[in-house]
């Protein structure tokens, strides 16, 4: 189950930066953003135990662009959720900028999710009862950004993802690709340090995906 295949790709906008090899401890800890140590996750399905993660050690440096690839059921989404603090690992530690996520209380965890991590989900997960603009504004309001400022920024980001004329539409009135672009805009709202994207283009057609 835990046959996780990982590949690193240097960020295209940083051609001078060497690819960071997570397999070796290069001692390049200065810019380390995410580190996991022996993370395991076991799902209990009735009698059966499913080992989704079997001791994952991963290091991700600041500015790095990493793709995690593997067949379905190999634990990609589980790793995504564990790093993002969305589920608790069965054992092991997740460090985000040297802070052990398990040590944080509910409020600090909410702060981390709000300010430092942007999530893009496979199934969009935008709030159906809110407009595109409100969806992007919400995390900024949680973060304490004044409403006017939050709205200006939300309009700007939505413009950047090509939804400038769709800001007041509800998810129902948007296509799948447009909904995912709202989700992408939302992930960038609070200028997070980490963007986690779980197969963000899996539900999109080839052209929009690119």
């Amino acid at each position: 189950m835990s046959s996780l295949h990982t590949k690193t790709i240097p960020a295209s906008d940083m051609p001078d930066r060497p690819a960071f090899n997570w397999l070796e401890d290069t001692g390049e800890d200065a810019d380390l953003t995410v580190m996991t140590r022996d993370v395991t996750k076991i799902y209990q399905m009735g009698e059966e135990k499913i080992h989704a993660l079997g001791g994952v050690n991963i290091k991700i440096a600041t500015g790095e662009y990493i793709s995690i690839m593997g067949p379905s059921g190999s634990g990609k989404t589980t790793l995504f959720n564990v790093i993002g603090g969305l589920i608790k690992p069965t054992s092991g530690n997740v460090f985000i900028d040297e802070i052990d996520v398990a040590q944080l209380d509910a409020n600090e965890l909410a702060w981390l999710r709000c300010r430092k991590i942007g999530y893009i989900f496979q199934s969009y997960n935008i709030v159906k009862v809110l407009t595109a603009l409100e969806n992007v504004t919400l995390p900024m309001l949680f973060a304490g950004v004044p409403p006017d400022e939050a709205q200006d920024r939300a309009v700007y980001i939505l413009g950047r993802v090509g939804l400038g004329d769709r800001v007041l539409h509800t998810p129902k009135e948007l296509s799948g690709g447009q909904q995912q672009r709202v989700a992408i805009a939302r992930a960038f709202a609070n200028k997070p340090s980490i963007i986690l994207a779980d197969e963000p283009t899996a539900n999109l057609d080839l052209k929009t995906g690119e």
């Binding site: 810019d31 300010r115 304490g144």
Partner: peptide, 18 residues
């Protein structure tokens, strides 16, 4: 050692937003 660009903070709930 790594330098910290940020430290963990806490969020406040806004009654108006509720």
């Amino acid at each position: 050692m790594a330098h910290k660009e940020w430290h963990i903070d806490r969020l406040k709930m806004k009654p108006g937003l509720v």
